[in-house]
Design a binder for these strands. Structure first.
Lengths: 168, 168
DNA sequence: CGCAAATATATAACATGTTATATAACGTTC
DNA sequence: GAACGTTATATAACATGTTATATATTTGCG
């Protein structure tokens, strides 16, 4: 077995480490979404959630809301348009802006997700790290150890918290 | 100004959030590296560090050490070969394995980095989050706020900790 | 021994982020 | 009101991760 250098190097590799854990978490979240039979990608959800919360938004506002660059938002909104979850129309007062809104199908997806998938994901992630405390490097180590011990999807059921049964 | 949904949604979007902060941190780290005039990418460093710590490693061991998949390791090692920082040769006992070692140039880079760049990065990241404590969502919020207040590269000098001058 | 299964690496195809730049619409100034 | 700078979105090119699969060894077994 080889040493995990990214973990060993601590603050020096914190960027890599956060990204790595984030990617892992998002992939695991995707499993929960797929299990629920919803045909959407984890990374597309925040866009729908943003519109659901704030009402129709432009591409630029969506990029800001989700924290990515504008070309990234343009691409994801293109996918959601393709999938029929959102509609897009030029703003009345400014033809440069495109207002993106939830379609009926998109609103249904959001409503259904709010009732089922999102609470399940949030509960699983809370089970994973809701009780943690202390320096960030220690929390990240605990998260990695716990994910290795019991994947996120197994934490998304109704069997209650698993945190205490796992490594620090 | 638009609401940051990924932050608002908390545990539900923790994967996206970690990835986003990790990407940001790594991009900021790249600035510190570039400022030092070293022609290398932040994501390539962990591979060099792994070999420096453990001695020559195979592609598969490097993938494990750095925590990515084997094809990703193959690609990055290809780049480092191209740059002349590593050498690769088939293992004597098993022709399938390729042992990757630091070249003289690579060892020099590592030695130089250990003396200058790495301590600077580690200090900057420690300045950013070394004093944090408490629930992970709060720490992440503090990290984002602090990065917005003072970018990582401005924390990499000898002017001491800035944490207290910033939010949260 | 000889062949099938397993293992290590390489390659292809794709996902999703970025930066740089093109294009179209708006707004300001002389 | 025409020209020029600014802003919003789209597109291109690239970076770097992934999964699936091909290829070349090695290992194990009848």
């Amino acid at each position: 077995m080889v040493e995990d250098v990214v973990r060993t190097l601590g603050f020096l590799c914190l960027g890599s480490r956060l990204r790595r854990i984030g990617e892992r978490l998002q992939a695991d979240t995707q499993q929960v979404i797929d299990e629920a039979g919803v045909g959407i990608q984890a990374g597309q959800y925040p866009f729908l959630a943003a519109i659901d919360r704030a009402g129709p938004l432009t591409i630029g506002e969506l990029a800001q809301a989700v924290g990515i660059t504008q070309p990234g938002a343009t691409r994801t909104i293109g996918q959601l348009l393709e999938l029929g979850f959102v509609d897009m129309q030029p703003a009345l007062d400014d033809q440069r802006r495109r207002l993106v809104s939830l379609s009926d199908k998109g609103q249904e997806l959001v409503d259904h997700s709010k009732a089922t998938i999102w609470p399940r994901v949030a509960a699983a992630v809370a089970d994973l790290c809701g009780d943690l405390d202390g320096p960030i490097l220690e929390q990240l180590a605990a998260i990695e150890d716990r994910l290795a011990a019991l994947p996120l999807i197994r934490r998304s059921t109704v069997t209650g918290p698993h945190a205490l049964s796992n490594a620090q």
